[in-house]
Amino acid sequence: MSSPQTAARRSVLVVCRNAPYGRSRARDAIDVAMAFAAFDQPVTLLFLGDGVLALATGQRPAAELSRSLEKLLGTLADYGVEEVHADATALAARGLDARDLALPVRLAGPAELRELFDAHDRVLTV
């Protein structure tokens, strides 16, 4: 793998809209966010809609079929992904609040969501 030009930095918003485990999408979004962080790009990970379920604590996937997303989420900060946001309306609609989440996230209402999309150079929905 050739190394990207790290002189240029473009902020990227990685958006996850899919619930964990039914598809690999949530895991893929986390992998993408970690890759941008590994190359020193400012990255924010945003969970929208069903995507917020990926943040719930107490995940127990069948061990032989799927790795725990919760464990992976716990390593985000170690990989340089420090900005994790969740759609506050989507959390409330699913009966979740900040205490039910596996890691500290920023809750974003409609105004904050608009700001997030505006503030980044790149938006990638994974």
């Binding site: 990207p4 030009q5 993408v32 890759a35 190359f39």
Partner: peptide
């Protein structure tokens, strides 16, 4: 995935 990052840059 570094190639995706580089494409973004």
């Amino acid at each position: 995935l570094g190639q995706l990052v580089e494409a973004s840059i």
